[in-house]
């Protein structure tokens, strides 16, 4: 995982308000050389959270980036080379990312961060909550009671829905707007 990706990712654990930047736990870092494109670097500069990049590059053992940077420094070839190296050539190959609020650990294996969440860590946004609600329930019943007929499954689901509406809190989302959580 490049530090550019790290600079975009935020912790996705439910309830976390400021999940950026993720902490870095290093086991192995690899360097892969890529061609430098000044245009790309100049364009991306304004979108980068500089402090997060500096901290991340130090975490993976590269201490050449200055603490502060502004757009005028992009004229310097030396600065561009360092910026390029930190942003695109250093890869966190093995290790983990850490949520700054909850400390939740997201393992990184073969350069791929695993950001899958457990059921109780997921916050579903309101946009798709009605659908995912029924869907989640249906999947649950498929898994558990495959011997039941479709009609029986529907009855089970209706009973389950009644239970959740009376228990005040929706099991699957915390939006407070959907029928199940009302």
């Amino acid at each position: 995982m490049r530090l550019l990706t790290h600079n975009m990712l935020s912790s996705n654990v439910k309830g976390v308000t400021n999940g950026f930047p993720l902490g870095i736990e290093v086991e192995k870092v690899v360097e892969k050389q890529v061609e430098l494109s000044a245009d790309f670097l100049i364009n991306i500069f304004s979108k980068i959270e500089w402090k997060a990049l500096v901290d991340a590059s130090r975490a993976v053992g590269y201490a050449e980036l200055p603490d502060q940077a502004d757009a005028s420094m992009l004229d310097s070839d030396e600065f561009l080379r360092k910026f390029h190296h930190a942003l695109l050539e250093l890869h966190l190959e093995e290790g983990a990312l850490l949520c700054p609020e909850t400390g939740r650990r997201f393992p990184v294996n073969k350069g791929i961060p695993n950001m899958l969440l457990h059921e109780d860590e997921r916050g579903v946004s309101h946009g798709g909550c009605r659908k995912s609600n029924t869907q989640l329930r249906r999947i649950k019943y498929f898994d558990r009671k495959t011997s039941l007929s479709w009609a029986e499954q529907c009855i089970m689901m209706a009973v389950d829905k009644l239970k959740t509406t009376t228990s005040a809190l929706c099991k699957f989302c915390d939006c407070g707007k959907c029928p199940a959580s009302a």
């Binding site: 995982m1 600079n7 996705n12 950026f20 892969k32 350069g111 791929i112 961060p113 798709g128």
Partner: peptide, 29 residues
């Protein structure tokens, strides 16, 4: 996908995540 990228000799990053649970900083892509 990782294997395919290696075969083509292209650099691609991967993240394992459910798309609907993604949280990224602003419009970063």
């Amino acid at each position: 996908a990782y294997q395919n990228a290696e075969d083509l000799e292209v650099d691609i990053e991967y993240i394992q995540c459910d798309v609907k649970n993604l949280r990224w900083r602003g419009q970063s892509v």
